[in-house]
């Protein structure tokens, strides 16, 4: 095989693994949109907030320590102990569920029957609030996140491809783990929605709010459930991206990568989020590989949106989205 083909293959494989990372973020959007028709602008910030909380628990940081010190002249910073990753993850899940409960009580409950744009605006406010809350609770400094997921070049992939092609491919081990975690997550979500009472209720609400209400399904419970699941998905995305770049406030910008994924895959489809992520990942890496010598690099950001734009022209509902039928 020629070098160009090998390099392109390597770029494509990397695109697949990166695409899964994009999908992890997009999944949270899909879950909430599917169940409540809300485009959750705060999904990226939820990933940041979850990652900040996880690191805070892991390192035994005192929440609001800066505030406490400023008001009371104290000098508290941490509890003096660290927490195992699995325990910190469980506690963070509890926090995300509590957050979902509060969002439902304080925001969504008061906006029932409002236009989708009002709910969307509410999530913009929520994003700003959560970003500020995360800052006050855990501080703005960059934090290292280590939950034991290995990182670095996969020696196995390197050796295998070297034996096959005489050139060792580079794949980040973290991305391979992301692949596995995404598979488990999607399987879990499918099992939950197909085989549990709450999952079926969630699907019923997603299909028809009024009909679901008429058979006694609590819309408020479903919203809490949906936002809790989206919070857990945000935690998973926060762990993967936070392990890659550290936990810092730009982590919330990963949401920008999810938008073209959603346009491609459709806002209401979980498989769509996965396939959309893969398409964006592979597409941007191959485009950059082939076009970089011609138009220069740094094409990844705009290529994803350009591809999404093309899809919007021909298939506005995305690959797996529900066709919008307007009756007049």
């Amino acid at each position: 095989m020629s070098d160009t083909v090998l390099f392109a293959l390597e770029a494509g494989l990397n695109g697949l693994t990166v695409g899964i990372m994009y999908s992890l973020v997009a999944l949270g959007f899909v879950l909430i949109f599917k169940a409540s028709g809300i485009f959750n602008f705060a999904q990226g910030v939820m990933a940041l907030f979850a990652a900040l909380t996880l690191v805070g628990f892991q390192t035994g940081q005192v929440p609001f320590s800066h505030l406490i010190n400023a008001i009371f002249g104290a000098h508290v910073s941490d509890f003096g102990f660290t927490m195992p990753a699995f325990l910190a993850i469980i506690l963070t899940v509890v926090v995300m569920v509590l957050l979902a409960l509060l969002i439902e009580r304080l925001v969504l409950k008061h906006l029932v029957n409002q236009e989708p744009i009002i709910l969307f605006m509410a999530t913009i406010g929520l994003a700003y609030f959560l970003e500020g809350l995360g800052d006050i609770m855990w501080g703005a400094e960059v934090k290292r996140l280590d939950v034991g997921i290995p990182q670095g070049m996969s020696s196995w992939v390197d050796e295998t491809t070297y034996n096959l092609f005489g050139y060792g491919f580079y794949i980040d081990t973290l991305s391979l783990w992301a692949l596995l975690i995404a598979a488990v997550l999607v399987t879990g979500l499918v099992v939950f929605s197909q085989y549990t009472k709450q999952g079926r209720a969630l699907r019923a609400v997603a299909d028809d709010h009024q009909a679901a209400l008429s058979v006694g399904i609590s819309l408020r419970f479903i919203w809490v459930l949906t936002w809790s699941i989206a919070g857990i998905v945000a935690l998973v995305a926060g762990i993967m991206w936070g392990s890659k770049s550290g936990v810092q406030f730009s982590l919330s910008l990963i949401a920008l990568k999810a938008l073209p994924v959603l346009i491609l895959g459709g806002f209401t489809s979980i498989p769509g989020a996965i396939v959309g992520g893969l398409l964006i990942g592979v597409g941007e890496k191959l485009f950059d590989f082939f076009m970089q010598p011609v138009i220069g690099g740094a094409t990844e950001n705009w290529f994803a949106y350009m591809l999404a734009l093309v899809f919007l022209l021909f298939r506005p509902q995305g690959l797996f989205g529900e066709r919008i039928i307007e009756r007049v």
């Binding site: 695109g15 770049s245 730009s250 990568k257 690099g297 740094a298 950001n301």
Partner: peptide
């Protein structure tokens, strides 16, 4: 080149 913010630099 790396585009802002630079969260993904695989290529």
């Amino acid at each position: 080149a790396v585009d802002h913010p630079g969260q993904e630099q695989g290529s």
